[in-house]
Design a binder for these strands. Structure first.
Length: 515
RNA sequence: GGCAGGGUGGAGCAGUCUGGUAGCUCGCCGGGCUCAUAACCCGGAGGUCGCGGGUUCAAAUCCCGCCCCUGCAACCA
């Protein structure tokens, strides 16, 4: 029996516009978690995609003089491009306009209808004739539509289908009060439980006022409104209604990674719909915080005004990934700044890690002609080596515990304690001193073997965060193939073979000098 | 107004749930090393833990009140 599937999803992003830092943040975190699970040998299924229906997209397309499908076809590649630039390793990418999504969504809605979970009711709301759309109280300014202030808002009624959401308040409270992993972080769980205790209304799930969406199968003048359509991607992408074998194998999701803005829909509406059809619930819903822009250099920008590309060009994919995971406490709101990014990049990636790689590989080249000696025998290992190895074991344990707690920030921090320890080990054993006296030859071989082995293990351990540098290092250490294709089975001390050729190279992370 | 998060040495943060010598990174000062990307290592200075009360032998940590900042306000992570 193979390891159970680890199924993680990002939100499907609403492609009204191009991706910004917030979208990338959530996706990068997801990718890092998935890469880590793969190293553990898990059979990972990593899904992301795009949400392409709904009124806003219809309007955006109209403004551009296109059909909605033409518009989304044009914009989706912009998203793929960013994920590619960030080395995102999603296994699938779903668009809600695909047939594999639309048909199963209808199956799902039909199933709810057949179970009497959906009924025809009347939606009463405020309607703006100019927008041809319903508005909420909060959309209005002084009781008028901000886009059409000279038109009166009308009170209108419309036949809508409703999902019997109200009856799931109790089961949801029960779930979130009894299972602390069901919704994370803790603060978010408390928030939702609090809201649930105020009770739930049934939910309108169809519209007749526009037609860019999936038709209700038994009443085609209605299109399915966002919730049932978009949320369903998590199941339709893994075979719901089409491939029962795959669906049984992959569903439920282990993690739905989302932003805190869409927490309500994921933690209330989505599980309620699954409960209605007796489907298994996702193991964990994790809501990330929001990013804010700080610092001098970019303080005039808005979050949505910065493209990930603007940062990747300076910091690289690795620098980007590492910075956001390391500097912003995962699950909380955080502040992004250019200055902070330069500082973190230089301190951790260039000075501590990149420089360690340079100094070790240079010494191996200079003192050992680039060829690894035999690993140390038990009696050749001193207190210094034991300290280095213990630091590795501790770091690995911390990293594992951190990922179990879905805390990549903590994991990155833990991994770097090993990097720092390796630097202090270099000082402690001072290979350049050993090299001055031929009688220390074997001791020199031992310490450089240990250091090189430490680099190999760092390559594995850091590869979820900095996959490119990890791969480059892996190759320089004379290792075959891709570091990412290995598992932590390879993370046992002493894995480097005698005679392995080590090569030097350009700095993995050149320092970024502030202009 | 409501809801949420936050106010900890110069900067950015952890610690607060499970009270008990205040921890990390950057910066600064001093020293070391010379293998390395002016990098690395060691040591040091620097804090009334927003304010005021309370509980306690003991509070950054629990309780009450207040001030300030940020975000949200059901479809932008």
């Amino acid at each position: 029996m193979s390891e159970a599937v680890f199924y993680l999803t990002t939100p499907i992003y609403y492609v009204n516009d191009v991706p910004h830092l917030g979208h990338a943040y959530c996706t990068v975190a997801s990718d890092i978690v998935c890469r880590y699970r793969r190293l553990q040998g898990r059979d990972v299924h990593f899904l992301t995609g795009t949400d392409e229906h709904g009124e806003k997209i219809l309007r955006t397309a109209q403004e551009k003089g296109m059909s909605p499908k033409e518009w989304t076809d044009e914009i989706v590649p912009r998203w793929l491009e960013v994920w590619d630039a960030l080395d995102i390793t999603n296994d699938d990418f779903i668009r809600t306009t695909e047939e594999r999504h639309e048909k199963p969504v209808q199956t799902f809605v039909q199933a709810l209808y057949d179970k009497d979970e959906i009924y025809l009711g009347t939606y009463r709301g405020l309607y703006c004739v100019g927008c041809e759309a319903f508005k909420t109280e909060d959309d209005l300014v002084d009781g008028r539509c901000p886009l059409h202030p000279n038109r009166d808002i009308e009170h209108l009624e419309e036949d809508n289908y409703f999902f019997r959401l109200s009856k799931y308040a109790e089961p949801l409270i029960e779930r979130y009060t009894s299972n602390e992993r069901a919704l994370m972080p803790e603060g978010r769980r408390n928030e939702i439980v609090g809201k649930l205790r105020q009770g739930l209304d049934d939910l309108s799930i169809s519209r007749v006022s526009f037609d860019w969406g999936i038709p209700i199968p038994w009443d085609e003048k209605h299109v399915i409104y966002v919730w049932i359509d978009a949320l369903q991607n998590y199941t339709t992408a893994v075979g719901y209604g089409q491939d029962p074998e795959m669906f049984d194998r992959v569903w439920p999701a282990n993690v739905h990674m989302i932003g805190k803005d869409i927490l309500w829909f994921h933690s209330v509406i989505w599980p309620a719909m699954l409960m209605a059809l007796d489907l298994p619930l996702p193991e964990t819903i994790f809501a990330t915080g929001f990013l804010q822009i700080g610092g001098e250099k970019m303080s005039k920008s808005t979050l949505t005004g910065i493209s990930p590309h603007d940062l990747i060009s300076t910091f690289g994919s690795d620098g980007y990934r590492y910075y956001f995971m390391r500097d912003i406490s995962f699950g909380q709101d955080g502040e992004f700044s250019w200055e902070g990014m330069v500082s973190r990049y230089n301190a951790d990636l260039a000075n501590d890690f990149g420089n360690l790689v340079s100094r070790v590989s240079t010494m191996v080249k200079r003192y050992l002609n680039g060829t690894l000696p035999a690993p140390p025998r038990g009696d050749e290992v001193t207190e210094a080596e034991r300290g280095l190895r213990a630091a590795f074991e501790n770091a690995m344990d911390d990293v594992e515990a951190s990922f179990d707690a879905i805390s990549p920030t903590q994991a990155a921090k833990a991994a770097f304690t090993f990097v720092r320890k390796a630097n202090s080990y270099v000082e402690e054993v001072a290979p350049w001193s050993l090299a001055k006296d031929e009688s220390n030859r074997r001791r020199l071989e031992v310490v450089l073997y240990e250091l090189t082995e430490a680099l190999r293990l760092m390559s594995l351990m850091l590869s979820p965060f900095i996959p490119r540098a990890a791969q480059e290092l892996w190759t320089r250490l004379g290792q075959e193939g891709e570091v990412a294709s290995h598992t932590f089975e390879a993370a046992r001390w002493g894995g480097l073979a005698e005679g392995t050729k080590i090569v030097t190279g350009e700095p993995l992370f050149p320092r970024i000098e502030e202009e």
